Simulated scan of single mutants.
Amino acid sequence: MSRIVVGVSGSLASLAALRHATALARRDGAELLAVLAWEPPEGEALAARIPDRAWARMWADEARARLTRAFEDGLGAIPDGPAVERRIVRDAPAAALCRAADRPGDLLVLGTTTGRGLLGGPRRRPVLRAVTARAERPVLVVPGPVVRRGEARVLRRHARTAVAAPGTYPVPRQMID
């Protein structure tokens, strides 16, 4: 592998993917490219009709901060080991990730949730489905942690804990008691 491209959104599943991709990059001496894709909340069509540079800059800054937080929450900080590039892309996540993994030898790493959705049905995975259908490079899917209802809120509240080894997930003390 020459480079590992990981999709980051800040979700628990993407943090698991970031930890796993970082461990692979360290092990293989590969570069790590973390990609966070964002779109205007009102959609690209309305943003194109009524462009507002300040509004777009605010959302780009928020995406940059979210990527920095993902490194802090998932790894404690930006790792020293592998060469790390952080990239913010204004595009749909699947398209941005497929375009980012453009070199021969690239590996695309994505996190996914497991289990059932809030209403009992299977969870929708539109980004994962689109990436696996379109990617020209190998895709590694990393399962995120299985959390029960209400646990995700507790984990996010206590996200800045000590750095955990890849594949392990720190559990806040309140959940143990």
Rank of each mutant, 00 (worst) to 15 (best):
P41L: 14
E44W: 06
A54W: 07
Q174A: 09
A47T: 03
G74L: 06
A77W: 06
A83W: 02
P172Q: 07
R57W: 13
P126V: 11
A65V: 04
G144I: 10
E72G: 03
E72W: 04
F71G: 00
R90S: 05
A47C: 03
R125L: 15
R90G: 05
R173Y: 10
D28H: 15
R19I: 02
R69Y: 08
T22E: 15
P145A: 08
R99G: 05
L118M: 09
V147W: 03
R57F: 05
A25E: 02
V5I: 13
A17L: 08
A21K: 01
A60H: 11
A83D: 03
A17D: 09
V127F: 09
A56N: 13
R156I: 14
L24G: 02
P104D: 12
A34N: 01
G29Y: 13
R103Q: 14
A159V: 13
T22I: 06
T168A: 06
L15Y: 00
L12G: 01
F71H: 00
I176D: 06
A30W: 15
R157G: 05
I88E: 01
G7H: 03
R69L: 15
P82K: 05
L32G: 00
G105N: 12
P40L: 02
V109P: 02
A92P: 01
L119T: 14
H20K: 02
M175I: 09
A101K: 00
L67R: 01
H158F: 15
G117D: 12
W55V: 13
A37C: 14
A95P: 02
D80G: 09
L33E: 07
G111A: 04
L107G: 02
V131I: 04
A101E: 05
S11V: 08
E44K: 14
R134T: 10
A60M: 15
R66V: 03
E62C: 04
T161E: 06
V147C: 10
P126F: 10
L36R: 07
S2Y: 08
T22A: 13
P82N: 09
A30D: 15
L119Y: 08
V84E: 11
A70L: 10
T114C: 08
S14T: 14
R156S: 05
A165W: 07
T168I: 09
A165V: 08
S14W: 07
A100Y: 02
V8Y: 01
P172H: 10
P170G: 06
